[in-house]
Write a protein that binds this DNA or RNA. Structure first.
Lengths: 211, 211, 211, 211
DNA sequence: AATGAATGAGCCTTCATTCAT
DNA sequence: GATGAATGAAGGCTCATTCAT
């Protein structure tokens, strides 16, 4: 951290990482933002709506977040962290191959089915990152975490005697494939078609445990 | 067609499907738009810039396209059609397994390497379609075509005695996997990192022709 | 007519008053314009729509009319002349007081009831004339004609032995009163309420023939 | 009211009915708008000019008024309310027939003579209302008020022993007649001709106090 | 810590008009 | 006589951001 940055942080308490109260407020604002975001997407979100939903004034948003990009990145990290965290829990808690498979598969399918609107954000911000550098750190970071968690899953599958086409040596490919299906099912789901989702669920089983 | 109806159509030529001259102009405008789009993406494109780049006035854009969405959809279809067309040619022209593999793989890798900026659009519009219905038809249509062309590739691989993990019975999975890698490499490429691309090229070979 | 104006007229045949073919075309265009106008009003009319409805190109409109104002004034004159003409016919053809009253009253009431949309134009252009000089000649001219026709009606009422509160010596007041009611009924009619119209019809009778 | 709802209202103060400061500002903006409107009329007014005249930015206009229509309706109501209010005062304050007549007549004549430009708005918006629903509530409301005030005048005339052709039982007809003359005089006045106005003044007297 | 007020650049879209053919 | 193409000024509206309090 440069000395200038340090000074700015010192002057502007909301910037200080350690203040729990500020962070709590940031979290709260971000949660309201996520609910707005899930409805209209990045392209149409505006700070005034967010402020109204959060029950604060427009100025307050800028008091806690430097600009729109910072708020948005914060939001995506928040929800994706949460998603990854819950995925990890499920994986670790499973003790049989069947259970592991069920937990993992169920988590993905339910995410598409029930939280489709929120998960759209991931694909939205990932597309933005192709154009806007500011979004790249979040995307790269989260994508690494996703690859890691998928890797952990494949490892455990093998450890529990499972197999299939997934190679523990190549978690990236596994992640990319899963993410591809996830997004495809999401797309169909948003348009009102659940068949792809059903099909994917079937395949998830057969891929891991080829008959 | 009554003479009145004919005149109405004539009044706004962009609406008439058959006129070569107008279509030529639409194409030309779309090509300029694509170049702008490749630089800044959907989120930041604006019609004034497009008009300036195309060397026409703002009004002219609206003379040929009803609104921004229509122009943008037209553009994506144009470039993706072109990409698919060239991919199809390469696949059909190959007569040996090695050649087929080389052609296909080369087309994908070069697209990422050389036309990264343009190909970002595909992921951008696909994300938009998750929020905006207007973009869904184009996305669904193109995605079907992409799945079909991938299916054709896999078929031909098998016909020429190849194999690997790709199943001709499931072109969708193959497409999703390829698209996943494509996007991932694109992302790294745009950020200045070509390693993922090199790695993918290696894998493309080994996946089709397992050691 | 100045010599310059004469020359312009000579050079531009559509300007020549005597050309029947041109006038026929102007009339035709104006009739289409009136139908468009009746639907959307002056404030929202645009030449492209008019051209489309008329089955001609945009350029053609400007070939026959110098600018939008000229076209619009021409239209109002056309339809109001027609209205006044038919009113005059009815008045002249009546031979008894009852008939005269019935004819006159019926003409007004039906105009409001059946041609409300077209008659709105009159009040629209009259309001415009308060701001835009270009419209004043048409409005003044038509208003004089309307006063005259109303005067003729009142005269004939008296000649046939009628009376009431209307004084033949003051056609302007009579016209203003009738026009006031006409407009008021039109307003209610357009909003879907016919009660004012019914009431007016009743009063028209009683005013002329007080019990 | 929950604190959230309170905050939403607070966010956009223009929406809150009770805030004096905001209402003061709205009034101020509306007054500037009226002066612009009086010059050019509805058809040619634009928000940028209004902002410039008001000495505020374009954004500020939209901060206080949702859209152009809301601003315009607000303006018409403001000025017409004012006109009606002053008319009512004059009527109520008069204690003799002569005074009543003088007050009323003078108010109308001076309005035409001195505030012609502003009063044009009434006829303009009334014409707009024939085409655009959004303006109907204001127009109907004001017209009811005008009829009521005219009714009050006629009542008082009778109470003070006056008479003439005006019937207290039919305030609508009286209003329509007065409004008809008002508009006619306005029209002539705007075109530079005051004769109609003089004539009207003369008649106002004789109508109420027939020779 | 929070907010209300104000900003102004920027965007999409409309439309009368011009002109070469 | 008629048209298709192109224009460009103008307009309404949105929105992130700033700042005094």
């Amino acid at each position: 951290m440069t000395s200038k940055a340090a000074n700015i942080a010192a002057l502007h308490p909301a910037r200080r990482a350690g203040s729990d109260k500020q962070n709590e407020k940031k979290r709260e604002l971000a949660l309201h933002t996520l609910s707005a975001l899930a409805e209209v997407g990045f392209a149409r979100i505006n700070l005034r709506d967010i402020a109204a939903r959060s029950g604060v004034s427009l100025g307050t948003i800028h008091y806690y977040f430097d600009d729109k990009t910072e708020l948005l990145s914060y939001c995506v990290r928040l929800y994706k962290d949460d998603f990854i965290g819950r995925l990890a829990e499920r994986i670790e808690s499973a003790s049989t191959l069947d259970d592991l498979l069920e937990q993992f598969s169920d988590a993905l399918v339910r995410a598409v089915d029930e939280d489709a609107h929120t998960h759209r954000l991931w694909y939205d911000i990932r597309a933005q990152a192709l154009f806007d550098e500011a979004f790249r750190p979040v995307v790269n970071d989260l994508e690494e975490q996703l690859t890691a968690i998928v890797g952990r899953f494949v490892e455990k599958v093998e450890a529990l005697g499972g197999g299939g086409i997934f190679s523990p040596a190549d978690p990236l490919s596994v992640y990319l494939m899963l993410d591809g299906w996830f997004r495809y099912c999401l797309q169909q789901r948003v348009a009102g078609d659940k068949r792809a989702l059903t099909e994917w669920k079937r395949r998830l089983a057969s891929l891991i445990r080829p008959h």
